[in-house]
Design a protein around this nucleic acid. Structure first.
Lengths: 149, 149
DNA sequence: CACCTTTCGTTTCGTTCCCAACAGGTTGCC
DNA sequence: GGCAACCTGTTGGGAACGAAACGAAAGGTG
């Protein structure tokens, strides 16, 4: 009988860890603003540059097109973002934060930073090393046969 | 304007990493056996101890009850596991691998170990440290308000 | 024993997901 | 210009998901 311990399997551990970490932080915006993880990612990305197309978010953030599209629609319905057709290229839909959306991200940013602090504290002295390894692994595993579209 | 970079946000990075790693490995069993990640977890857990109740898997593996139940049903339909009612406590459903299921896990175990090797190689000298940090974080974040049922 | 509470697994309901197809818009090439 | 190939975002279909409710079974208390 070949022995296999799921608990020591790194893919499993990473899935559990990711889920725990994500839940730990999503609690902060789920209750206060009623948005999901997908929606949080879109808003967070919008905070860096206002007016971004759905396509760019799809490429930069780890979400496929329909997911971005639907998250954007929900955010629009909730009043956090606006969707406007780009006049130069009318295929593009530009997303931008409403004042209400900007208010939300500005309230969440310090909370996010505190959560990072918390994680760093848990990681201790090897915090930086750990983050380097994470980035390294992500880069090494590559875009992982993303949809080429 | 408060700056916030999603790319440097550890919860986001871990989600991306977990997804990449999980996809990288699931490719190996999705094509060959047509099972999903949830089903892989159940089978992998069953390889450690035969005849395990749904409840135990739910508690030990990071899956809620309906997810385990459905994964078990799919595995049963595919002929990889059997479900039998425990005679002592007839509420319990004991899962165990069929010969076909055992055959699958024994074929996948060496592949899993090779995949671990691959990841270790990517992590380099700090492999052990990295794994320690992962375990440490999981433990520190705790059961994360699991459903108490 | 009768009754209430708890536990276990399944099912239901509504939502989200992914994949594929789609319509509208743009570009290139003749 | 006109037509084909391409790009962008949305939508449909089928499967899976989470939360809550459910029926069946066991335990606990009078």
């Amino acid at each position: 009988m070949t022995s296999f311990k799921l608990d020591d399997f790194l893919p499993y551990q990473l899935a559990v860890l990711s889920s725990r970490v994500s839940d730990g932080f999503s609690r902060h915006y789920r209750n206060a603003y009623g948005i999901s993880v997908s929606e949080w990612r879109v808003v967070a990305h919008l905070s860096q540059a206002d007016s971004v197309s759905v396509r760019e978010i799809h490429q930069r953030v780890d979400m496929d097109k329909p997911k971005v599209s639907r998250a954007a629609s929900r955010l629009e319905a909730a009043g956090y973002v606006t969707k406007t057709v780009n006049p130069q290229d009318r295929r593009l839909v530009e997303l931008s934060l409403t004042p209400k959306g900007r208010e939300m991200i500005e309230a969440l940013t310090p909370i996010a930073h505190r959560y990072e602090e918390h994680l760093s504290q848990l990681l201790g002295a090897e915090d930086a090393q750990f983050r380097t390894r994470v980035s390294q692994l992500i880069a090494a595993l590559g875009p992982e046969i993303r949809n080429e579209d």
